[in-house]
Amino acid sequence: MAANENDREVSRLWRIVRTTKQMCADRGYELTEEECNISLDSFRQQYTDETGAPQRTKMAFTARPAEAMLKRYTPLPRAGQSDGPEPQIGTVHVEFSGSANIGIKDIKAFAQLLSEKNYYTGIFVTASAPTSSALKIIPSLLPTIMEIFREEDLLVNISRHELVPKHLLLSPEEKRSLLERYRLKETQLPRIRVDDPMAKYLGLRRGQVVKIIRKSETAGRYASYRWAI
């Protein structure tokens, strides 16, 4: 009976960890193909204890942004600035928590770890919903960026769903040329909320623009753009 329970939990967490790593890879962090598509067997070997129970603490991982991601997150140089601006991205650290209750203190402890280790972004994947106060303190932790995901939201990778069009983050350069080409202000673009599921998947920040590519039987592929708010 207990073994059955463990099996179910292991395969559930296997899906969740896989989606999380695919999500990080899609954002542009350095993760290998094997890591993103780990088999259930190797997952079981790596992340369970001798009783077969999953060990969430072992699932924590850290990834660095690849060259392309660094570029995409580098702001445009300002006039008169001698050296180029720093990329607004860095190492991501992901932890999984099976705790039944996530309060202010848990979030603060995670934030503490992120700032001690100098991680740019933290992703906290939780089995249960954090308290409302815990969610409210997240903006006050800036410049540390913390994202919270519920385990159940990562059971399937929504970006792989056939009805979800491809979302691509534009670099500041691409955004500028888009606006110039169409003589638009960013505020004239249609919008996407940063708490939209695909925006959360990509970790969109306010002011960024995503390109959305749809397939159409009559028109082939066409793109639209959205401004994150």
Binding site: L163, V164, P165, Y182, R183, L184, Q188, L189, P190, I192, R193, D196, P197, M198, Y222, A223, S224, Y225
Partner: peptide, 15 residues
């Protein structure tokens, strides 16, 4: 609906 089903193609006319 706002996310997935908007068929508005940019650019929007410059109003």
């Amino acid at each position: 609906r706002t996310t997935f089903a908007s068929d508005v193609v940019v650019p929007r006319p410059n109003i």
